[in-house]
Amino acid sequence: METKDALINYCLRLGDSSLILGQRMAEWCSNGPILEEDIAMTNLSLDLIGQARTMLSYSGVVEGKGRSEDDLAYRREEREFYNTLLSERPNGHFGDTVVRNFLHDAFFYYLYQALKSSKDEMIAAHAAKSIKEVTYHLRHSSEWLVRLGDGTVESHEKVQESLNDLWEYTGDLFEMNEVDEVLIKEGIAVDLQKIKLEWDKTINTVIERSTLTRPEDAYMHSGRLDAMHSEYLGHLIADMQFLQRAYPEAQW
């Protein structure tokens, strides 16, 4: 595999995970449990969509076929998206969203921390920029996890159940293939198994503080690397892409 092809795919992975999680957070707009959280979740969405823009634009530039960030976000089919399976999980109740984001924020945090030293200048700049935003995201989701886990009997049970349900999508975050192999050799990508060690530590610290129990590793879903998704992504992108599909070339 050529470095260029690997890089195009790698940027799509980063961009797509931010885009899909950002779209999920946008779904909370006007549906938040309290006003402050409604604002917080749409702020998170804005950061994530901003991060997606950088990486999708860059993927288009590397590809060199004139595809813009909008073409990539709004004109691709479900089987062309490389986002993590975790990012597409439905919002569910507020606790489900908190747990999903917590697991994902910690992943982004350590991934960007490592990518700051990527030999690809654009990826390194993107990581250095995004880490500032993701730090706030991780703190936000961790604090809510503690509040809900160490809260009432009901909130504790609910988030423990969210954690048990979402756990089987965490294996997918750290899977690697030839794309990673090629880019790790070039010093562009990072070894996700090393990221997992850091991720594990933070997950354990926060779970313990939340008085929750870390689920046992059992069956893990996979699919991200081959753009194989759960039934939820199609519905999400149908909603996200509706305007561009109905009115192609529509501009602000």
Binding site: E36, E37, I39, L44, Y109, Y136, H140
Partner: peptide, 30 residues
Amino acid sequence: DKGILFESGPKVVACPRCKSENTILKSQFG
């Protein structure tokens, strides 16, 4: 702001109106 877990924000943010330092963080996002 570099702390990631449970070390939120600066210790003291003075009220821009009355200058009191007795203020509380309501939300990380505004």
